[in-house]
Structures are given as C-alpha cells and as structure tokens.
Design a protein around this nucleic acid. Sequence first.
DNA 1: GGATAGAAAACGAACGTCCGTTATACATTG
DNA 2: CAATGTATAACGGACGTTCGTTTTCTATCC
Lengths: 231, 231
Amino acid sequence: MERPSLESFTARHHLDSRSLCAQIVEAREGTIAVRSAQAATDNLTRIIEATLRLANRKGFAAMTLRELARESGLSLGGLYAYIGSKDELARLIQAWVSRTLRRVMASALEGIEDSRSRLATAIEAHLLTTEALREWFFFLYMEAHHLASDERRQAVAAERNSEQIFADIIRQGQAEGHYGAMNADIAAGLVKAMLQDWYLKRHKHGERGLNVATYADTVIAATEALLAARA
Amino acid sequence: MERPSLESFTARHHLDSRSLCAQIVEAREGTIAVRSAQAATDNLTRIIEATLRLANRKGFAAMTLRELARESGLSLGGLYAYIGSKDELARLIQAWVSRTLRRVMASALEGIEDSRSRLATAIEAHLLTTEALREWFFFLYMEAHHLASDERRQAVAAERNSEQIFADIIRQGQAEGHYGAMNADIAAGLVKAMLQDWYLKRHKHGERGLNVATYADTVIAATEALLAARA
DNA sequence: GGATAGAAAACGAACGTCCGTTATACATTG
DNA sequence: CAATGTATAACGGACGTTCGTTTTCTATCC
C-alpha cells in the first residue's frame, strides 16, 4: 500500500489555512466588504489563524476582539469587514473544518474496495487531515459544545458521519470474513477516540517524538487486533 | 473477578458531589465565611453543581455569576461567602476532581498483584469514577487548557500520572510474558483515549443504550487484544 | 508621468450593556 | 440584642459593536 507523506497529502487535498480561507471568501462573496479576493483571503487568513491561536490558548469566549485585532494586525473596526459578529467567526471555522474532513475522507477512499485497505486508508486520511489542520480541529472539538442548537446539531451530525464511515468499513470487513462479530458502531467509536487523541493531546505526542505516520501504523495495528479478537 | 456495581463503587469511594464538597469545606476551613459545616456543605454543593451544569452547557467563561446565583438559589453577593473569585471556583473543582481520581485508582488497585487483574481493575475503576462524577470530569477536561500556568502544570501532571499507572501495568504484564513488545507508553495513551471517550461523548453512548459495565468489558477486551497482538 | 479625484479599505474613539466584585442593608436566630 | 448569614444595590471596568473620519489604492486626465 502506498503511504502518502504529510506534505503530499496536504498539497493534494489543499489542507492549509490559506486554501480554506480562500474557499470561505469565495463562498461568502457579498458578505465580505472587501472586493479583492486576494486581499480578502490574506486578511481573513490572518484573522482566522489569530483566532485559532488565541482561542486554543485561552478559549474563544475569553478571547476579546481587541486581542484579536492586535494579534491579526487589523484594527478593531476593520475586523467587521470580514465577519458579521464574533459568534459568526466561530461558526465559520467550525462549518468549514467539518466540511473539509468529510470532503477529504470521501476523496481518499474513492476507488478503494478491499475492506482492510479502506480501513487503513480511512485511519490514515483522518490522521493526516487533522494533523495538517490541527488548530482548526482542536477548535472544533473544544468549542462545538457551546454552539447554538442549530449549529450544534450540524456539528454532531458531522461527527456521526465520520464515525459512520468507520462503522461501514468494519461491517464490510465482517461480511467479508476478516473481522469477528463485535458491534461495529462501538468499535468505530473506539477507533474515533484513538484518532481524536492525536490532535487533542498534541503536546504529549510531540514530547514522545511520535510522528503522525508512526501513530497511524500503531492505530491501524491496534484496530485490526481488536477487530480480529472476537473472530 | 468480582465486578462492583456502579452504586457500590460510588458508595465505597464516596463519589458523589456532596461528599466531595464536604471534603472541600473541611479542607478550606477559614476561607469559607459560613461557620456551620453542614450548611456550608449544602450551599457549596448547590453552587458547584450549578456551575457544572452551566459550564458544561455554555462554557465556564460564558457563564456569568448572575446566572450561577439564579441556578444555585443563592444571591449574587452570597456566592462570595463560599468562593474567593470566579477563577478560584474553577480551580477548586479541577483540583478536587483530579485528586479524587488519583485517590480512587490507588485504593482500587491496592492488594492486586496479577497484571491482568490490575489492568481490568484499573480500567473499570477509571470508568466507574468518571461515570459517578461525569460532570466534574467533563469540566476538568474542557476547562483545564485555560488555566493559569501553575494550575495547568498540575493538571497535566495528574493526567500523566493516571496514564503512567496504565503504562506500569502494561510493562509488568510484558515482564510476566502476557503481552507483546509494544511501546507501553503509547499503548497506555490509547487506553486513556478510550476511557476518556466515555465521559466526553456521554450523549452518544446513552443513545446506544450502552452502560458503563458493558463499556468496561469492551475496553478491557480491546486492550488485551491490542496488547497481545505484537507478542 | 506626475497630479488629482473618487472609491475602497482601515482606523479607533465612543456607546450602551453587562461583567465580576464590593459595600451596604436586612433578616434570622440563639 | 449581638452575631451570623443572606439579599440588594452600586461600582468601575471591559466587552462587542457602531460609525464618522482618515488613509490607501486606482484610474483618469493634462
């Protein structure tokens, strides 16, 4: 099986902050008061990267727009050319990061039929995506609970969707006789927990000198072991 | 192996909010302006339970003391008989929940020598403790990142300590020849991720009709499978 | 090609609101 | 009637947001 490097995976799926911000600018044409897409993307990227930096340090609610202005290099009033409100800024980030994960997972799995390849690919794609957009995913996880009910339901649905991908692969593998009869939904939940640990405890993994490829191998091996166990 | 029920475990280790608050009142004698330990415990329990309810819904920073007063049944000014400041309230909860986990894990493992029994006991004790004090642990996890550096270092140390317990058991099992040669620290990290998923995604597990005993069995089986795999 | 006018973008002081906290007034009880 | 606990009211400060102004860009003309 080919193992894409983090760099090639990031490039292929456009997993950098600027690419995401460019998509946001394009999708929100009309809402952003700055005409030049180039300049708007530049500034929105600085705003969002500053938001992720500050919010991941002290929490989104505790972050003030004055700090955000200072950190992003814009003025307090200037922020409002790009965002409608502070809350909208949070919704923006959340919506785009979950949509990106869905997009990349679907794209990475396309054309792969064998259930064991699909499992390994899905695990790897999840880890590489969350590694490339670490701060975005950390933000999504930590702040999703505090959204208004509409957006919150959307975030829960996205989470469920990604877990469903793993459950379906596991069911396929069971049908093909590779795995034992364990409950696929619960197994998928365990896999998801291990995957999320990667970006939630980034500091710990960094200290251990663990890189994302090694962690992917570990999680793939662990998953196959626990799926085979009850055969 | 005996499997304690949630109720008996909770009772044996005093894992209810009121017991914890009673300990806090005792430890903070002098800081709390109310003389009667009985009345002080009653009110502090209401304050802390209201805090957990509100903070887990909208985040600690977004929770206001006016809401807390309403939710706890005390007056705004009255709160300050029990807490020195809003921040101190957060520190209080965090300090006591991590100290409680450490206490219970040590107590549950006492006298158990066999590594496989220790592993199962540790997993079960972790799950039962976090189940009994779900809201407390959820609060610890979600708000620990935003603490001042001193308290934050303490929280990281507590986290590391509980992971170390699992790593030590795994190393013991490897020395006894039960498990393969996998890196014990990484394996312990995977176990911890599965354990934390229980209280972080409580809603999901509830919908699946999964109870804590069943989940404990699942995690124990999964852990033994992944530890045996590389034998 | 430098000057200039009009548009686009950025600025930051000011506003009303609500925050955490404190000081004061009231009730309860031994 | 002290003493003790609670409720009410007030305070300064900081928040998100707005808006009149200034700066920067760009196209046009001599």
